[in-house]
Simulated assay, not measured.
Amino acid sequence: MNRDVEMSRLSLNQITTENWSLKEAVDGCVRNDISAISIWRHKIAEIGLKESKHLIKSSGLNVSSVCRGGMFPASTASERQVRIDDNKRAIEETAELDGNVLVLVCGPSPDKDIQESRKWVKEGIESIIPFAEQHGVKLGIEPLHPMYAADRSVITTLGEANVLQASLGSKQVGVIVDVFHVWWDPFLYEEIKRAKGNILGFHVSDWKVPLPDIFKGRSMMGEGVIDIPRIRKAVEENGYHDFVEVEIINQEIWDRPGGETLQWMKNSFAKYV
């Protein structure tokens, strides 16, 4: 395996260095020969879209994705429309930054009717597909681990995401495979095969035992129980050969110097991904 070629696929998902501004993250990638970045919208908002675009253009970095759209369910039609409008802004931001993929964290139920909320997710995505197509942006449905069903996403398995993608009937929509969210699934490899041609992103981190926190619980690759190389082999066999994002939400890692985190990330990527 040519590790130089493999390392060229490494992308920093910006949440891994949450303590850094977008400028600091861009500069860190350039200094550490990381060729791509996934940008979070709250970091765009801090400095504005125009300055964000300038930073990316001048750096030469690729934008592997923008995080995040979604959060479709809401109690009233007017609230759901507000969320659809925000997703359209996210699509515009992604296009302006020359990103190809907007990651959708689909959202929790506002009440106990989780099935109704899943219907609202489908309706929300359906309503933005033409807008995404006009802007050349793909929509990546990211299933989250079931422990996030109550507060982040009612789409909790890759199987659900595949069914949703198929029901929408649009190649503008695909799925994101994040190892932290899907590694436990007994049907994972069948569902990765089912997603062939529709995988829009691959995210890596690890599941350390015991889990340090529910939200800020991800660990650096190699520290936990996930068989990352096997999952990576499966997504590649089923058509995904684009950037591999390191996405780690962990307070202890956030508290480290960002440059140190990037070096650790590169070393772990080379060894465990």
Rank of each mutant, 00 (worst) to 15 (best):
V182E: 12
A195K: 06
K193C: 00
A150D: 15
L139I: 13
L144Q: 07
I141H: 01
D151V: 04
N198E: 04
E191T: 01
V163D: 15
K138A: 11
E160W: 06
I155C: 03
A195E: 03
S167L: 03
V154F: 09
V173P: 14
D185A: 11
F187Q: 12
S170P: 07
M147T: 10
I155S: 02
V175H: 12
H145W: 09
P146R: 08
A150F: 05
G197N: 10
H181A: 08
I176G: 07
S170G: 09
I192K: 11
N198R: 14
W184M: 09
Y189T: 08
S170Q: 06
P146T: 02
T156F: 00
D185F: 09
V173S: 10
H181V: 08
L144C: 04
Y189R: 06
V154M: 12
L144M: 14
K171H: 12
I176H: 09
T156V: 14
A195P: 01
P146S: 01
D178C: 12
K171V: 03
T156L: 02
G197W: 05
Y148S: 02
L164P: 01
Y189C: 09
V154H: 04
V173A: 10
N198Q: 09
E160H: 12
D178Q: 08
E190F: 04
E190R: 13
L168T: 05
Q165K: 15
D178T: 05
A149W: 00
H181G: 11
S167A: 15
L158H: 06
W183F: 15
E142T: 09
K171Y: 07
A149T: 15
G197M: 13
I192D: 00
H135D: 00
E142Q: 14
A150S: 15
T156R: 02
I141T: 07
M147F: 13
P143D: 02
T157W: 12
W183D: 11
L158A: 09
K138I: 00
H135T: 00
L158Y: 01
L144N: 03
